[in-house]
Nucleic acid binder design. Structure first.
Lengths: 114, 114
DNA sequence: ACTATGTTTCGGTAAATAACGAAACGAAAT
DNA sequence: ATTTCGTTTCGTTATTTACCGAAACATAGT
């Protein structure tokens, strides 16, 4: 139990993973969209996403050749609390606002296939 | 700002540091009391405490030859939110309950000078 | 069947982390 | 002044982490 909390905090203890959660709380995204925002290698983003998934914070589903990621809609209690907590934090953060602007205004095709 | 949140989560992303916070939310403690509960080297506990202090989660004050640690009574907003969050989590966790039982029932002198 | 494209897995590297014991530090008591 | 005792700092080690590019995998379209 305390181990689960540790895993949740570890998942959230990285700047890039916090940014991912804050983006996904606006809308679901695929790996390459996130990559375009964070400016990391695709494999690195994939790794971050799997850490968030293992912690129970996010889930994914297939859509054509894309795999979309979204906030876990059925989290267990500690995860649910953590997600709510993150949702209330950093709403005024400049990085978060900038990230969200990008994903809201730019199209997936343009973002991924530059 | 997002960096501060990262530091806070990092501070909380270790099982032993979570246990420390949960203990301090019951009452202030010195290094050797915490050491006795966590069963870690004194230097390790000191290191954990300094990570929590740097994050703004705890503060310390001198009392004779002891240095006592307590939850930061004047945290800034993100820290305050995190502390409240932790306070609401893990109340039923067995490890947390056991830790608190020890620090509430056993005397500092006995605990430290075994 | 082949190609293109999005994603994951693998192998490797550099940096960060958690742990320890020994040495240094500081305050209280002898 | 010296010793004692709680604590911090230092130096070291083993493990974990974040990152990358290349290779493997999967699926859609030609």
């Amino acid at each position: 139990m305390i181990e689960q909390q540790e895993i949740i905090f570890k998942a959230l203890s990285d700047k890039n993973r916090i940014r991912i959660i804050k983006m996904l709380q606006k809308k679901p995204l695929c790996v390459c969209e996130i990559r375009a925002v964070l400016k990391l290698a695709v494999s690195t983003v994939s790794q971050h996403l799997s850490i968030l998934r293992e912690a129970g914070l996010i889930t994914d589903w297939k859509e054509g050749k894309w795999i979309n990621y979204k906030i876990n809609p059925e989290p267990d209690q500690p995860v649910s609390n953590a997600l709510l907590f993150v949702q209330l934090q950093l709403e005024d953060d400049e990085t978060v606002k900038k990230d969200r602007k990008i994903i809201e205004t730019v199209d997936r095709i343009i973002l991924c296939c530059k």
